[in-house]
């Protein structure tokens, strides 16, 4: 895979900001969106390409 999302081997992103104690959701909207995505895709009557 070679495309804009493939970061493997690229240069220039600097050091890693290591965060040892990340909560599962740092912002309320993160949990909300995961919940919405899970809730509307169960039962899965379509696939991501159709979406």
């Amino acid at each position: 895979m070679d495309g804009i999302h493939d970061a493997g081997g690229k240069f220039g992103f600097g050091s890693i900001k290591v965060t040892p104690d990340d909560p599962p959701f740092k912002e309320t909207w993160e949990g909300r969106m995961l919940g919405v995505a899970r809730a509307i895709s169960r039962p899965a009557d379509w696939n991501s390409d159709q979406f």
Binding site: M1, H5, F11, V18
Partner: peptide
């Protein structure tokens, strides 16, 4: 390297650094 694929069922939500370009680019 392309995004943030992760065994959610075993480890939960990814830590922030796992999704950073700095980790994804240099890990390989």
């Amino acid at each position: 390297t392309p995004c943030s694929c992760y065994p959610h069922g075993l480890l939960g939500i990814q830590p922030s650094w796992y999704k950073l370009e700095s980790y994804r680019s240099r890990a390989v």
